[in-house]
Amino acid sequence: MANHLHEGDLPEGLFEGASSLAIDSETMGLNLRRDPLCVVQLSAGDGDAHMVRLDRSSYDCPNLKALLLNPSILKIFHFGRFDIAMFELYLGVTTTPVWCTKIGSKIARTYTDRHGLKDVVKELVGVDLSKAQQSSDWGAAKLSPEQLAYAATDVLHLHAVKEKLETMLIREGRMGLAQACFDFLPHRARLDLAGWGEMDIFAHS
């Protein structure tokens, strides 16, 4: 298992032949319009993680953008709504197709209200994630080894979590419902960017 840092973009052909990628991002905060996208991390589920420290002056990363747009590669997220919106806003791409382990957890694991990545990974994969670097300066000119290790853990276990959740969703007869939510997710992200972030557009009032 190794962590790899790439400046500006991914090497060409890095994930050639991959059918799915776990993806996450790091930003300067959680406000879509205020806090810029800084780092994108990816894993093919092989134990390696690749972190891209983006050039925020241009966000010129054609290889990364091509992966996000590739219809043959499933993109696995945890709370993909935020990452997908960030990619739309800063990279100008609509990320599809997608699978969100947070949504999958909420639909499958109805016996709990603990759907954060740390809790889901702990129960389903048996790994205790550290969140010590969650609130740190991701816009720094140089990322620390601790930051890189933290970023890697956010994607290294998503393939295994997806597999476990998929089994539960199929067992409970909810896979079709979950898939419909995943298909809607890029549109939900677009609603966030357009100003409907906190409003439940399906509510009566």
Results as ranks from 00 to 15, higher is better:
residue 79 F to S: 15
residue 45 G to N: 01
residue 15 F to Y: 14
residue 160 A to Y: 10
residue 35 D to S: 08
residue 90 Y to E: 10
residue 199 M to D: 15
residue 59 Y to E: 01
residue 130 S to F: 05
residue 179 Q to M: 07
residue 128 D to R: 10
residue 190 R to C: 07
residue 131 K to Q: 10
residue 67 L to I: 10
residue 136 S to V: 07
residue 152 A to P: 15
residue 77 F to N: 04
residue 138 W to N: 09
residue 54 L to V: 07
residue 71 P to G: 11
residue 140 A to D: 14
residue 178 A to S: 11
residue 134 Q to H: 03
residue 89 L to I: 04
residue 78 H to W: 00
residue 40 V to S: 02
residue 124 L to I: 00
residue 168 M to G: 09
residue 178 A to C: 14
residue 144 S to Y: 13
residue 157 H to G: 13
residue 117 L to G: 12
residue 50 H to C: 11
residue 195 G to D: 02
residue 172 E to F: 15
residue 146 E to P: 15
residue 15 F to H: 12
residue 90 Y to V: 10
residue 193 L to P: 03
residue 28 M to R: 03
residue 75 K to Q: 06
residue 136 S to H: 06
residue 54 L to A: 05
residue 66 A to Q: 11
residue 168 M to H: 12
residue 83 D to G: 05
residue 79 F to K: 02
residue 10 L to D: 12
residue 143 L to G: 14
residue 194 A to C: 09
residue 53 R to W: 12
residue 201 I to M: 12
residue 198 E to Y: 07
residue 86 M to R: 07
residue 114 R to Y: 06
residue 30 L to Q: 03
residue 40 V to A: 02
residue 54 L to D: 02
residue 80 G to F: 09
residue 174 R to L: 14
residue 36 P to F: 01
residue 15 F to E: 03
residue 6 H to L: 03
residue 126 G to Q: 09
